[in-house]
């Protein structure tokens, strides 16, 4: 009874491979923005959040306000709060309080999606197997990317840098295709984001605040216009 550590490892491997490529791109990006190799690695090892890290790099590099950094992380990573709420309903009795403190640290979009899609409740052995290789992949990929950023020709690093956006596209597109309200939310967010980029008066707003403002407006408008059904899953199916 219960899923084994081994099954967790097997389920986590595809995520690990995906993370290797994406965090490789992050490593290149961080070093290209002026961070040291050790700094890039530490950011990945202590945060384990693609979007949050990507947004933080220009804020830190430009000496931005702590409030901007903290608020941008809050908004960008708010989705994890919901995933943690949902995951807490899916844990079996083997998961102790101290396990929760550890598992929460690596509760990423992909880890959550796999853990919550299991038919039975999940135990701590399975969860530790599941989070092990994605965490190592995320850290190792960042290290390799940070080192390679200095070695590889620009022509290659430039192309690899787009991988992190590939990850966002992989998460958003299938849901926007299946659900019109989510597609509308995506459209609003994209238009607002472009306004902040191309309208001269708005383009001076720091990047962290742009993310907060645009995302809160887009999600807020759609939450009023097209609220989700209470009875259904409170978490997006594949986020």
């Amino acid at each position: 009874m219960g899923y084994t550590f081994r099954k967790g490892l097997i389920d986590g491997l595809p995520v690990c491979i995906g993370y290797l490529s994406v965090s490789f791109a992050f490593g290149i990006f961080a070093v290209g923005s002026g961070f040291g190799i050790a700094e890039a690695l530490m950011i990945s090892m202590f945060n384990v959040t693609s979007a949050g890290q990507l947004a933080a790099v220009p804020i830190i590099a430009s000496g931005g306000m702590m409030a901007e950094l903290a608020m941008s992380q809050l908004v960008i990573n708010l989705r994890y709060a919901l995933m943690s709420v949902s995951l807490s309903q899916r844990l079996d009795r083997t998961v102790r309080l101290r396990d929760r403190f550890l598992i929460a640290f690596v509760n990423t979009d992909e880890v959550f999606a796999i853990a919550s899609s299991q038919r039975e409740l999940v135990g701590r052995r399975y969860l530790y197997g599941l989070i092990l290789t994605p965490y190592l992949g995320w850290s190792l990929g960042t290290l390799l990317g940070a080192i390679a950023g200095d070695i590889l020709p620009t022509i290659v690093t430039a192309a690899l840098g787009i991988a992190i956006y590939g990850m966002f596209i992989a998460i958003v597109t299938p849901v926007a295709r299946a659900d019109r309200a989510t597609a509308a939310c995506v459209l609003i967010a994209a238009v607002l984001s472009c306004l902040f980029r191309y309208v001269p008066a708005l383009s001076a707003v720091p990047s962290g605040f742009v993310i907060i403002i645009c995302a809160v407006i887009a999600a807020g408008v759609m939450a009023v216009v097209a609220p989700v059904k209470i009875s259904s899953e409170e978490v997006p199916a594949d986020a």
Binding site: R79, I171, T182, A189, S193, A215, A219
Partner: peptide, 10 residues
């Protein structure tokens, strides 16, 4: 529900 997609799009 909407915030992840909004954030990643922006």
């Amino acid at each position: 529900h909407y915030i992840p997609y909004a954030v990643l799009t922006v």
